[in-house]
Amino acid sequence: MNSAVMKKTMYFFVLPALLFYCLFWIVPILKLFQYSVTDYNGYVQKFSYVGLDNFTKLFHEEILGLSIRNTLIYTFITVVAGNLIALALAFLLNANIRAKGIYRSAFYIPTLFSAIVVGFIWSYVYMPDDGLIASIMNKIGITGLDTNFLGSYSKALYSIIAVDIWKNIGTSTIIFLAGLQTVPQDLIEAGKIDGAGRWKLVRFIKIPLLATSITINVTLSVINGLKAFDYPFIMTNGGPGTSTNTLIFTIYKMAFTDQQFGKASALGIISFALIIVITSVFVFTLNRREVAA
């Protein structure tokens, strides 16, 4: 405690960084709370305080429920489907197969592209009639199916979720793969000696030891799902209608198209609260289930 390095005065050196942190991080967040009770329109500096009007209005509009619902569907599917597929891929890629390296890179490549590029490519893949999927289906003789993926109320949301999963699967797979490689060989051998079959090895040894990776992946994809914005923005503009409006997309549109920064800030605070609650529930429950090797 008394070493020269740990002198209390050293804390003063933190001050400059702390100042910047406050200025560019804490103050804007506090500003958000301030704006949420005003009718600020984003660029005229004169605004008045309207109390909780923004919140009351939001709770009376269908857009709030709709975007929360869309966001939760988005999150649920990306978390469940994304992680199951990634886990399966990780097991496959961990097996002793030929040209493992090539497969591993292949699954990771989509992750390297920016969301803009991916969204743009996929809007052509999904294009009705002349898109990649539609023309392949035509070639192999499947006709009569509705290929209007992004333009249909019932399919648009799921179509963009599929793209999100496709793009992010690489990251989750890599994390699972790393986890799988840390499973000690002696535990597996001990299991084999005790007569465990392939499935039992996975179920009772590998998956429990992957708990840390599962926590990381699930948490990351929960956060990723809750702040979904890129694909609705690039691929569907929130449409058709409002059917792919996620929370963040709605905030963006409210702030910059409707020029209701105040109301958008209020929605921001609502989603901020929602995201904190959901994420912390996940982290706490998953943390408790982790076991150490």
Partner: peptide, 8 residues
């Protein structure tokens, strides 16, 4: 055109 909602 049918499917106009899916066309940019």
């Amino acid at each position: 055109n049918k499917g106009s909602l899916g066309m940019a």
